[in-house]
Simulated assay, not measured.
Amino acid sequence: MTTFLLILTMIVSLALIGVILLQRSEGGGLGGMGGGGGAGSFMTGRGTTNLLTHSTAVLAGLFMVLCLGLGIMDKGAAGGGGHDILSTKSLTQAASQPGTGKGATQPAPAPQAPQPAQPAR
């Protein structure tokens, strides 16, 4: 399922790139290419702009949903240990406790000095 979603995300991202590149930077969006056929043409310049803007919005929304779905399905898979960010202590809790922050080590216990032997009486 993850592979399918990943391939679908790649296709949607390439389609999104293509639709964005078809638009003009000033918002005309294929305006010079679409309106040459007269009143009976299929898509006027304005209609092409609306189609590209709506398809950009739909593709962007689909891309975001697919990325969120992939993130939810694969949470913790990259670490290999199944670590979940929601089930671990937050950094603020760990930093507030002494000796539990990142890279903190516990101090070694002090060595006990040997006691002098008591002479027997």
Rank of each mutant, 00 (worst) to 15 (best):
G18R: 04
L22I: 10
Q23S: 01
T100A: 11
T88K: 05
L16N: 00
L16C: 10
A39W: 01
T88I: 10
Q112S: 09
Q118F: 05
A117H: 04
P119T: 03
F42K: 13
P107F: 01
A110R: 05
G69Y: 00
A95K: 02
A15D: 09
R46T: 09
M33N: 10
T49E: 00
P116F: 03
A113N: 08
R24Q: 10
G45H: 03
S41M: 12
G82H: 08
G34E: 00
L68E: 08
H83K: 08
S41A: 13
Q112G: 09
H83I: 12
Q115W: 02
A39G: 02
S96I: 00
T3L: 11
G31L: 06
I72Q: 03
G34V: 05
Q115V: 13
I7A: 08
L22M: 15
V58C: 08
G79D: 15
A117P: 07
M64C: 11
L62R: 06
G79R: 08
A15N: 06
L52M: 00
T48K: 03
F4N: 10
A94L: 07
R121F: 11
G37T: 12
P98C: 07
Q93V: 11
H54V: 15
L59C: 06
Q23D: 03
L70C: 01
M64D: 04
M10C: 10
T53A: 14
N50E: 14
G35K: 03
I17F: 15
V12Y: 01
M33V: 12
H83Y: 10
H54P: 06
G36M: 07
Q115D: 13
S96C: 01
G81R: 07
T56V: 11
G18A: 11
T105C: 13
P114A: 07
Q97G: 03
D84N: 15
I72K: 11
M33L: 05
V58R: 06
L70V: 03
V12R: 00
L68A: 11
A120C: 05
K89S: 06
G35P: 04
G80W: 06
E26G: 02
K75L: 15
T44S: 15
A94N: 02
A104W: 06
K75M: 15
K75F: 14
A95S: 10
